[in-house]
Design a protein around this nucleic acid. Sequence first.
DNA 1: ATAATTTCAGTAATCATTACTGTTTTGTTT
DNA 2: AAACAAAACAGTAATGATTACTGAAATTAT
Lengths: 136, 136
Amino acid sequence: MSAATTLKRSRQRDAILAFLKTRKDHPTADTVYMSVREEFPNISLGTVYRNLTLLTDLGMIQKLSMGAGVPDRFDATIVPHYHFVCTECGNVMDLDMNTMEEVNRIAGAGFDGYIAGHVTYFYGQCNHCLNAKNNC
Amino acid sequence: MSAATTLKRSRQRDAILAFLKTRKDHPTADTVYMSVREEFPNISLGTVYRNLTLLTDLGMIQKLSMGAGVPDRFDATIVPHYHFVCTECGNVMDLDMNTMEEVNRIAGAGFDGYIAGHVTYFYGQCNHCLNAKNNC
DNA sequence: ATAATTTCAGTAATCATTACTGTTTTGTTT
DNA sequence: AAACAAAACAGTAATGATTACTGAAATTAT
């Protein structure tokens, strides 16, 4: 059905991907927009969203959905890894740990469907927020 | 600071909680709205949201945030348990497995903040959708 | 260069959720 | 039991993130 639509390069998409690769803090679409705007003052937020979605579909970046209200975040690191969300400042950071493949088996043991994978977010207080508290 | 605001009962809130307790499929706010409407035709969606949020804050129900775009779901079962999301039909169901307390330790090992807990969703195809596929 | 098609900028629309406002309930106090 | 103060309501408007639409500009193959 779907005619294989040929992908054309665009300066805007290149800039969006390039920016994401410089960041380790999983920026939101709006943050990407603000930054890429410096190079392309006329870029529109819709273009940022469209390209972030496209890059995600292409498997070149990954989208992190953090729950209702909170905006999505984007990560140029596509190798599987877990994330930590600070409940104080809302920042999202990478965790240095192996993927827990075995939990899929554990979950599947008492379940009559197929478990393809899992998404886990750890939460708590980041180092920075812990230190800020001690300074009272 | 905050003057302890006294909670007053309301028929609407009672109905919302009663409905949630009859369901095992974690309905959305809109589903709750549709149902409670049968008893209270004039109830407004805002009332449903306000009470779902209030009940969540009171710890009487729990809110499941499933990521951007997708509406929140609500669960009258407050004992900790994991959830499965079917990528075909979008239904959310309970998993019969123990909570994995130890993964917080594992995650905290190489991290310099405080890990309070984790949220995990398993995904894949539910039994119903698997069977539907085989019937082609 | 030209044509075919994608991508763009700008803007409007959508969807879930929250906030506001004047009225109704509720629980308490006489 | 009537009166009062506070909470909750219905109805509606506003918000915030994201997607869809439209005519113009950029990209790639011919």
